[in-house]
Lab assay of single mutants.
Amino acid sequence: MGFKLLSKLLVYLTASIMAIASPLAFSVDSSGEYPTVSEIPVGEVRLYQIADGVWSHIATQSFDGAVYPSNGLIVRDGDELLLIDTAWGAKNTAALLAEIEKQIGLPVTRAVSTHFHDDRVGGVDVLRAAGVATYASPSTRRLAEVEGNEIPTHSLEGLSSSGDAVRFGPVELFYPGAAHSTDNLIVYVPSASVLYGGCAIYELSRTSAGNVADADLAEWPTSIERIQQHYPEAQFVIPGHGLPGGLDLLKHTTNVVKAHTNRSVVE
């Protein structure tokens, strides 16, 4: 069995187990497998329904001669939608809004960016022009300005110390501490036991640490421990890039980060 097929099978099995364990909360999309990078042309966006009122959005972007996937989250909030992270750029984010209108038909009224990198804030200006209120932590807003990236308009308070959590509509926002970046936030959907790890969490097929220019490698494993301790009931975990899975993604990420750190020390 090929690795790609095995990865998709694991996603399907995880979703099936969740649907059985929580039949009222989960209505997993039966329309197909989780979209992969090879299936999404740059400039297009796919939506994948995880649970009743919960979707991931998947886009792709060219970077350094390669094409990478990027995940975000959409959560229903009454007759409105909360968006977590842009679709990595203005063109993708405009396509995301169009796809949401086509498939869901509810307005996106608020959006949260989970850290300051372009795959999370690139497209904020498109959201703002569409009347979406954009939010991020003060740290993310400051770092985005320093980096020359787009800056969300509103500040999220109460997320300055490791372990801080605040309720934001249908989700809980959690600051686990520094990891992929010093400002990275985690998003949890309690009604569906869905954990969105953003770039602080890796997919299972990833074996290298990737972009760690703004990471705190020493603190990252401790931050992941905080996530595990705060959300032990999480059933569906979405990484910032690639295929979702279960809580095993947290341990896998820790292993990859520690291996990278150990290699760096040896070198």
Results as ranks from 00 to 15, higher is better:
Leu9Glu: 15
Leu250Met: 07
Phe63Thr: 05
Glu33Arg: 11
Pro41Thr: 12
Ile58Thr: 15
Pro244Ala: 06
Ala165Val: 12
Thr36His: 12
Pro239Asp: 00
Thr253Asp: 03
Pro69Ile: 13
Pro107Gln: 12
Tyr175Gly: 00
Thr36Cys: 08
Pro107Phe: 06
Leu247Phe: 13
Ala98Lys: 09
Asn71Ser: 06
Glu267Trp: 09
Val108Leu: 09
Lys8Thr: 15
Ile238Leu: 07
Gly78Met: 07
Pro170Gly: 06
Asn211Met: 08
Glu101Ile: 07
Arg167Lys: 12
Arg142Cys: 06
Asn71Met: 03
Asp77Glu: 09
Ala178Phe: 07
Ala218Thr: 13
Leu24Met: 14
Leu195Lys: 01
Lys4Ala: 06
Tyr12Ile: 11
Val121Gln: 00
Ala129Tyr: 12
His260Thr: 11
Val112Trp: 04
Asn262Trp: 09
Val42Tyr: 07
Ala144Gln: 04
Val28Asp: 10
Gly210Ser: 04
Arg263Asp: 15
Phe3Lys: 15
Pro107Val: 13
Pro107Lys: 15
Ala192Gly: 11
Arg76Met: 11
Ile50Ser: 04
Leu159Tyr: 03
Thr140Trp: 02
Leu247Lys: 14
Ile151Trp: 05
His154Gln: 10
Arg263Pro: 13
Pro23Cys: 13
Thr254Gly: 10
Val37Asp: 15
Leu9Asn: 15
Gly210Asn: 02
Ala144Asp: 03
Gln235Tyr: 08
Leu13Cys: 15
Ser137Asn: 08
Pro23His: 14
Lys258Asn: 13
Arg167Pro: 12
Ile58Leu: 11
Ala21Thr: 14
Leu5Pro: 13
Val42Glu: 14
Ser62Cys: 06
Glu147Ile: 14
Leu243Gln: 14
Thr86Met: 00
Val124Ser: 08
Trp88Ser: 00
Tyr196Leu: 03
Asp79Leu: 09
His230Asn: 14
Gly158Lys: 08
Glu267Tyr: 10
Glu157Cys: 07
Gly89Cys: 00
Ser38Phe: 11
Gly246Arg: 10
Pro190Lys: 09
His260Ser: 13
Ser137His: 08
Arg46Phe: 07
Arg141Asp: 02
Val257Thr: 04
Gly32Ile: 07
Asn71Gly: 03
Gly197His: 00
Val237Cys: 04
Val126His: 08
Ser56Cys: 15
Val166Asn: 05
Gln235Arg: 11
Asp248Pro: 08
Thr36Gln: 10
Asp119Ala: 05
Pro176Ser: 03
Pro152Trp: 02
Val166Gln: 11
Asp119Gly: 04
Lys8Asp: 15
Trp55Lys: 02
Pro190Asp: 11
Asn92Asp: 02
Ile238Asn: 05
Ala51Val: 13
Lys251His: 11
Val256Pro: 04
Leu106Met: 14
Asn255Trp: 13
Ile151Pro: 06
Tyr48Lys: 11
Arg206Ser: 15
Thr153Tyr: 14
Asp29Gly: 10
Gly72Asp: 05
Ala179Val: 06
Gly72Pro: 04
Phe3Val: 12
Ser62Trp: 06
Thr140Pro: 02
Pro138Ala: 08
Leu217Met: 10
Phe236Thr: 10
Gly72Asn: 03
Ser137Ile: 08
Ile20Ala: 11
Ser7Pro: 09
Lys251Arg: 13
Ala87His: 00
Leu195His: 05
Val54Ser: 04
Met18Ser: 15
Ser264Ala: 12
Val67Thr: 15
Ser264Gly: 12
Ser31Tyr: 11
Ala98Phe: 11
Tyr135Ala: 03
Pro239Val: 01
Leu173Asp: 00
Gly72Tyr: 06
Val112Ser: 03
Gln235Met: 09
Val194Trp: 00
Glu267Phe: 10
Ser38Arg: 10
Arg128Gln: 13
Arg120Glu: 03
Leu106Trp: 08
His180Pro: 02
Tyr202Gly: 05
Val121Asp: 02
Val42Gln: 11
Arg167Cys: 07
Ala136Pro: 05
Phe168Met: 11
Phe26Trp: 15
Phe174Gly: 01
Val67Phe: 15
Ile74Gln: 03
Phe26Thr: 10
Asp248Trp: 06
Pro176Trp: 00
Asp77Lys: 03
Val266Ile: 08
Asn71Phe: 03
Leu250Cys: 00
Ser155Ala: 14
Ile40Ala: 09
Arg226Lys: 07
Val126Phe: 11
Ser205Gln: 07
Gln228Lys: 15
Thr60Leu: 15
Val42Leu: 08
Leu82Gly: 01
Ala136Phe: 03
Tyr175Asn: 08
Asn211Thr: 07
Tyr68Thr: 06
Glu39Gln: 10
Ala94Asn: 13
Asp79Trp: 08
Ser139Asn: 11
Leu9Lys: 15
Thr109Phe: 08
Ile227Gln: 02
Glu101Asp: 13
Asp119His: 01
Pro170Trp: 02
Ala218Glu: 14
Gly169Lys: 04
Ser7Ile: 10
Tyr188Pro: 01
Asp85Gln: 00
Pro138Asn: 09
Leu159Phe: 05
Leu6Arg: 08
Glu99Cys: 06
Gly210Gln: 06
Leu9Pro: 13
Ala133Val: 13
Asp216Arg: 07
Leu247Glu: 09
Ile227Glu: 01
Glu145Asp: 12
Ala165Glu: 13
Asp216Asn: 12
Gly32Trp: 10
Ile224Pro: 01
Ser264Gln: 10
Gly163Thr: 07
His230Ser: 13
Gln61Leu: 07
Tyr135His: 08
Thr261His: 14
Pro221Leu: 11
Val42Thr: 12
Ser31Cys: 07
Ile151Arg: 06
Ala200Tyr: 05
Leu47Glu: 02
Ser139Thr: 12
Leu195Asn: 00
Phe168Ser: 03
Ile201Arg: 03
Glu219Thr: 09
Gly197Lys: 02
Gln235Ile: 10
Val187His: 00
Asn255Ser: 12
Gly158Met: 07
Ile50Asn: 05
Leu143Val: 05
Leu195Gly: 00
His115Thr: 00
Asp125His: 11
Tyr135Ile: 04
Gly240Tyr: 06
Pro69Arg: 09
Glu33Asn: 09
Asn71Lys: 04
Trp55Met: 03
Leu73Thr: 01
Ala218Cys: 07
Val45Gln: 05
Leu47Ser: 03
Val37Gly: 15
Val37Ile: 14
Phe3Thr: 10
Gly169Tyr: 06
Arg76Tyr: 06
Cys199Ser: 02
Val194Ser: 01
Val11Phe: 09
Leu81His: 02
Leu250Pro: 06
Leu10Thr: 15
Ser223His: 01
Lys258Glu: 14
Val121Pro: 01
Gly123Val: 03
Trp220Asp: 00
Gly246Ile: 04
Thr254Phe: 14
Val67Ser: 15
Ser22Phe: 08
Phe168His: 00
Val189Ala: 04
Glu145Thr: 11
Ala192Met: 09
Ser160Ala: 13
Met18Trp: 08
Ser113Phe: 05
Glu33Cys: 07
Phe168Tyr: 06
Thr182Tyr: 13
Thr36Arg: 12
Tyr175Ala: 02
Gln49His: 12
Thr153Glu: 14
Leu247Pro: 14
Asp118His: 09
Gly163Ala: 07
Leu249Gly: 01
Asp216Ala: 08
Val194Glu: 01
Ala259Tyr: 09
Ala129Val: 10
Ser38Leu: 10
Arg110Pro: 06
Leu243Asn: 15
Ser191His: 14
Cys199Asn: 01
Asp85Cys: 00
Leu96Gln: 01
Ser181Asp: 00
Leu13Asp: 07
Pro232Met: 08
Gly2Glu: 15
Asn262Arg: 11
Asn184Gly: 02
Thr36Asp: 14
Val257Arg: 02
Ala129Ser: 11
Leu97Gly: 00
Gly242Met: 05
Asn262Ile: 10
Pro35Gly: 08
Pro41Val: 13
Ala209Glu: 06
Ile201Trp: 02
Ser27Arg: 13
Asp77Ser: 08
Lys251Asp: 14
Glu44Asn: 13
Leu106Asn: 08
Gly177Pro: 00
Leu156Asn: 02
Met1Gln: 06
Ile224Met: 05
Glu33Thr: 09
Ser208Gly: 10
Glu150Ser: 04
Pro170Asp: 02
Cys199Val: 01
Val121Lys: 01
Phe116Trp: 15
Glu267Gly: 07
Asp85Thr: 00
Pro23Ala: 11
Tyr196Met: 08
Val121Arg: 03
Ile238Glu: 02
Arg206Asp: 07
Ala19Ile: 15
Ile227Trp: 02
Asn262Gln: 10
Leu81Gln: 00
Ser264Tyr: 09
Gly78Leu: 07
Gln229Met: 14
Leu81Asn: 01
Gly148Pro: 04
Leu247Gln: 11
Val45Phe: 04
Leu5Asn: 15
Ser193Asp: 12
Phe174Tyr: 10
His117Thr: 00
Gly89Ala: 00
Pro190Ala: 10
Thr153Asp: 11
Ser70Asp: 03
Gln103Gly: 10
Asp77Leu: 02
Thr254Met: 13
Ala130Leu: 09
Ala213Thr: 11
Arg141Pro: 04
Val28Gln: 09
Leu185Pro: 04
Asn255Glu: 15
Ala21Arg: 13
Leu9Cys: 15
Val112Tyr: 03
Ala213Met: 14
Ser30Tyr: 13
Ala87Ile: 01
Phe26Gly: 14
Val265Asp: 13
Gly246Ala: 09
Ala179Cys: 04
Tyr48Phe: 13
Thr14Glu: 06
